[in-house]
Design a protein around this nucleic acid. Structure first.
Length: 250
DNA sequence: AAACTCTCCAACCGCCCCGAG
DNA sequence: GCTCGGGGCGGTTGGAGAGTT
């Protein structure tokens, strides 16, 4: 692709850390012309940077209103909850955290939560093997998530051998949800279209396709990795949060 | 004090989407 | 409908500084 300021002269674009002078040039350009047209920044502002690099610098560092400093506990809570719903949709999550960039959230998540997952993997692994055997012996299993802890899968590897389970649950204000577990399957047993729509993120547990409280659907699909399900809930969204709580936060 | 590890975060890369022509 | 460039996004890398052994 020839975009982002590349040109036919095979110009050597500057890379690496931005200097204060470059920041000044970029800020002046954006203040004058507004955001967008990044590919023309190089020629107009006298910056030897690709448009892509300019955009990133502006969005993640120079843009007014950006917060500095550590993520607050409140922000962390929001991140956790939204990640439970959307997975690695960092830009989407960032929209709910004014002043924070997707890059910042992404970095925060990786440094703070990836390691938690690793630490829990060994512990999970033992549970998984035991409970997986039980499930396979019983065939389709009904259980109350409040009454029984179920771990579906732990392989200690981010991308291999993901197991997923389809939960049928029946939202009701008055009764505990009943979750029907088919025999534990591998990802290859699940509809490929579904895994396409809801790619796993390789972190704690991907929770996808969660029904809104207002929706009448009695079924939600949950993909779980390395995740003890200890939730008690009436709705899928509650379930998502509880999965997290049951897994690592409490 | 030195070596090592961890954390933070800026920046780059590759891929994808979308709109214009 | 197709191509292409602009723009956006998620994944990854690497350096700097802090903390630990």
């Amino acid at each position: 692709m020839m975009g982002w300021g590349a040109n036919s002269d095979q110009q050597e674009w500057r890379k690496g850390p931005w200097t204060p002078e470059e920041d000044k040039l970029l800020s002046e350009y954006v203040n004058l012309h507004g955001e967008g047209r990044w590919s023309s920044v190089a020629s107009c502002a006298g910056l030897n940077r690709t448009g892509k690099s300019c955009r990133l610098r502006w969005v993640n560092y120079l843009r007014p209103g950006l917060k500095r400093g550590h993520i607050t506990p409140q922000e962390e809570g929001i991140i956790i909850e939204l990640h439970a719903l959307w997975g690695n949709k960092w830009s989407t999550i960032a929209r709910y955290l004014p002043g924070r960039t997707d890059n910042e959230i992404k970095n925060y998540w990786r440094t703070h939560f990836k390691k938690k997952e690793k630490a829990s993997l060994k512990q999970d692994k033992r549970k998984v093997l035991r409970q997986k055997n039980q499930l396979q012996q019983n065939g389709t299993t009904k259980f109350s998530p409040q009454a029984e802890e179920v771990t579906i899968k732990s392989d200690g590897n981010d991308n291999e051998n993901q197991d997923m389970v389809e939960f049928n649950y029946h939202p009701s204000m008055d009764q505990e949800p009943v979750v029907e577990l088919p025999p534990v399957t591998t990802s290859s047993d699940i509809s490929y279209a579904w895994t396409d729509n809801f790619p796993m993120d390789g972190l704690w547990g991907g929770l996808w396709n969660l029904d809104d409280h207002s929706q009448a659907s009695d079924k939600c699909k949950v993909a779980i990795r390395n995740q003890p399900a200890t939730a008690s809930c009436s709705y899928a969204t509650d379930y998502a949060v509880n999965l997290y709580n049951g897994g690592f936060l409490i």
